[in-house]
Design a protein around this nucleic acid. Structure first.
Lengths: 114, 114
DNA sequence: ACGCAACTTCGATGACTGTCGAACAACGGA
DNA sequence: TCCGTTGTTCGACAGTCATCGAAGTTGCGT
């Protein structure tokens, strides 16, 4: 297989109707990913490197993949950046109130801290 | 160590204020445990063996332990049974609306099936 | 053209998870 | 007292997970 098969593939996302609740819950149960989602809540779109998490770039990339495949986030390429956004509207349509409730619950316990 | 150390220990539960959202989300992200919680929703208290899940007793015991340690359920001993109940009120107090929203989301996709 | 910046992919590693079967403990009834 | 029911604990095992470093790709600036 040619070396070019190693090319960076454009991100793929599940359709809104395919989003699985159990996958979403699992994605949210990791602290790093929860931080990413919370950050995205405040700011609509961010580049990968701009999240306040302290892990190696390769680890971060892994977490984005999990979030993407669960349907929580969306990524589009722009230049050599990858811009990440919450799939807020689709999530709301499929699981009304879920994201709000979960994030409110997190805020309530993790406190306003961070 | 004496054989009696192998005695069955009474179930312990985290205090309401100690319930961790990430632990709860993780606990709910498994299909077997989600089924247990959903079943408990309909019926207030059940014995371990009466849940509509198809796993070995030892596996079921493991799932109860995860649910108990996450704070989702409560178990009390009665004779040689262990009765399981949702910690609905405490959960509601700590994470308002969470359980309702999550279970509604599950019902919506998994359908009325089961 | 060269190098830097931004991410991704690969491979490895140690930790955790879901699963089971076997053995054990506790209780109630025959 | 012996037995069946109920459920737990232990040990094992295969699969998944979070993490990292190294290497690779892409695109922008210089």
């Amino acid at each position: 297989m040619p070396r070019s098969s190693r090319r960076r593939t454009p991100p793929t996302h599940p359709a809104a109707e395919e989003i699985d609740l159990l996958d979403v819950l699992h994605a949210l149960s990791d602290p790093t990913r929860m931080t990413i989602v919370r950050t995205l809540r405040a700011e609509p779109e961010r580049a990968c490197g701009t999240f306040p998490v302290d892990v190696a770039p390769s680890t971060l990339s892994h977490h984005f993949k999990v979030l993407r495949e669960s349907g929580l986030i969306q990524q589009r390429e722009e230049a050599n950046r990858r811009l990440t956004a919450l799939r807020g509207a689709e999530l709301e349509q499929r699981f009304p109130g879920l994201l709000d409730t979960v994030l409110a619950a997190y805020d309530r316990t993790a406190g306003a801290g961070a």
